[in-house]
Design a protein around this nucleic acid. Structure first.
Lengths: 209, 209, 209, 209
DNA sequence: AGGTAATCGAGACGGTACGTCCAGTCTTTGT
DNA sequence: ACAAAGACTGGACGTACCGTCTCGATTACCT
């Protein structure tokens, strides 16, 4: 049994050109107005070649944003000892990235793509949640070793969800907002604020009835 | 002075028929494949009539989802005295609504619409954030009067953002996830130092009378 | 029962523009390279409009050549009393028309269209044979009243066939060729040549064996 | 001097397979829908191999129809002594061939090819006219030695033209039509002054010994 | 025997055109 | 004046072929 490929080998260079053209088109026109015709023309490729690599608009966008350009590479949360500050810095890095118009356009586009395709949605989740959850858990493990593991997921998705929501609705993630977000996730809405070490005995003030 | 309009009066019935047709089309095909031609045909209306009411696809979708069908009417957070349970119940109601395929499709569509139109994004934000933030603050005000004011927004958007994120990426909001989310937002990731998942061990002071 | 049309009335002006653009494209590029895209663009029309009028390339070409531009309007054979000369003049008029490059291109195109579509072939036959046969029979009726009626068809198609064949194979219809053709059809290959009046007692010279 | 070619020898078998595939495709889909891709696939050949042999669609079709399958090999006109009957028989043989659907499709295709390519037109003319003219002149030379020399060409093209015209426009060459055609070409339209159609009354001097 | 070179099937490549669908506008008739 | 019907321009869709260009694998000739 021969595993050798027959025919001309597919050109990686063309694939990259297509992704770059897609990135530019997305930044310029957004997801809905995205045109395969234009992308192919801008990449100096035939339309068929684009379709050979990516079967649909959403697949192309997913590849472009998730595995190519656009989404923040998995940044580890810094570990200076001060969790709150570390988290805050990490989130601010994320916010700064989202504040760039081009990145914002790309991620909004991948949002729209995920809204339309189950497959893209799954890839989006795998990429984004895994990355941020890993980053968070790695940092929190030694800061709050007693925390339930499920919390990491919830906290990660609360953070990512809030950031993406702000991006979607065009509300800037102000420093104040980031502060509140970190506080909420670290200590809870009713928590004692200001303390950044682990093991705080958060008391639930609600007396109920 | 005569306030009466000349000619035939614009039919409110037609407008409703258009919105209903839009809802059905959205549920059936999603935002991207939405076709004004089909909507008009399904509503028994002329295309011009649709354009007379709504200038663009995104405006139509926004109207349909936000002010018409699709988005949950502002549900107040119940107040039984037990905040955690109240919040949990409220969130579960939201989750149940999102779990219905038709609602999910509609909200995903409005997400895509918001990603494309600044105007829709603003309406989306106004509608969703205002509603949930109001609901939350109203409940938390007497539960934790000492909480910092910014927290309500952050907490509301963390909750809503996480829920919408789960909807977007097609991950079901499991009871465990809701538990963790409520815990995180209420007490912070380090708040409840219970170790296991089911929340039974989690020290919840609320006696639920 | 109302027979009235609803909606915008179809524009004859556009139809004419399409036919004219088709004529120009045919003359410029020939049948095979004919492009509906180019035709529509040249006519300032949408592609859909072209397809609304004509369902296929061959139908468009048939309409253009047969009922529009290109094919000689039914010219009656002159009647000066001298059949041979009349016929010769009539044929020469036909030849002159075919000698024009644009006409040649158009008729070659309709030939190709007829080769591909049964429907176009029928229209081609109806138009061309009927016209030439009528022209011929009208003239021959008083010149050779004794001729069998079937002969007129055969003669007409022999003439038309020979002319179209010459056009197809790019051989000019020289004066000598036209002379021979008229002689053959009028008097037969063995006939007495030179006489141009009617009622000649053509003798069949073939002695056989 | 070495005339030997280096490298692998071109496979005549492949060339034949290509021509046969072309013939089948032509019969099945016609000239316009002809696809080199399909031909190559059907012949089990690479596209490049097809192009190595034939530079264009029209060249391939010409080769296929003229020098390969499709066109009648040059049939000599029989010589039994009775010209009229000989000619009629010869023409009937031609008509029978054209009546076969596959042959008809092939010749119609070559017609379309000739309409598009000057080169194919020339080859078509050379092949068809030369063959039929030679056949005719050979037979007529001893039947009507006094006929003008130009007549043979005109007569041949009148016959061939009429037959091809009938083929093109999908009109069957009925026995009556063939009779009339032979009569016209042999004796002229006014030649036989019989009045009725069946040709029985037509005074035919040839005793048919 | 070991290059050297042309050919083979296969199939990716940049393009062009296809025929369909839809957006958004305009026109016509009916109410 | 509004409504339905639907034709209009324009443009993108996804597919099919075109003719060219690599590929690895065969053949053949020529040292």
């Amino acid at each position: 049994m021969s595993d050798t490929r027959r025919g001309r080998t597919r050109s990686e260079a063309v694939r990259r050109a297509v992704l770059e053209a897609t990135r530019d088109e997305l930044a310029a026109h957004g997801y809905d107005k995205l045109s395969i015709d234009r992308i192919a023309a801008a990449a100096g490729a035939g339309k068929q070649t684009v379709y050979r690599w990516y079967p649909s608009k959403s697949a192309l966008v997913a590849e472009c944003v998730l595995d190519g350009y656009g989404f923040p590479a998995t940044t580890p949360v810094p570990n200076t000892g001060a969790v709150r500050r570390d988290l805050r810095d990490w989130l601010e890095g994320f916010a700064d990235h989202l504040a760039e118009p081009q990145s914002a356009a790309l991620i909004r586009a991948s949002t729209a793509a995920a809204a339309e395709s189950d497959d893209v949605a799954r890839r989006f989740y795998d990429h984004v949640t895994a990355a941020s959850e890993d980053a968070l858990t790695a940092r929190l493990r030694d800061a709050a070793p007693t925390a339930r593991p499920a919390s990491a997921t919830a906290a990660a998705e609360a953070l990512v969800g809030a950031m993406l929501y702000r991006l979607l609705v065009r509300q800037p993630a102000t420093p104040e907002f980031l502060d509140s977000l970190v506080d909420t996730v670290l200590s809870g809405i009713q928590g004692t604020n200001g303390t950044d070490s682990a093991g705080t005995q958060a008391r639930d003030l609600t007396p109920d009835c």
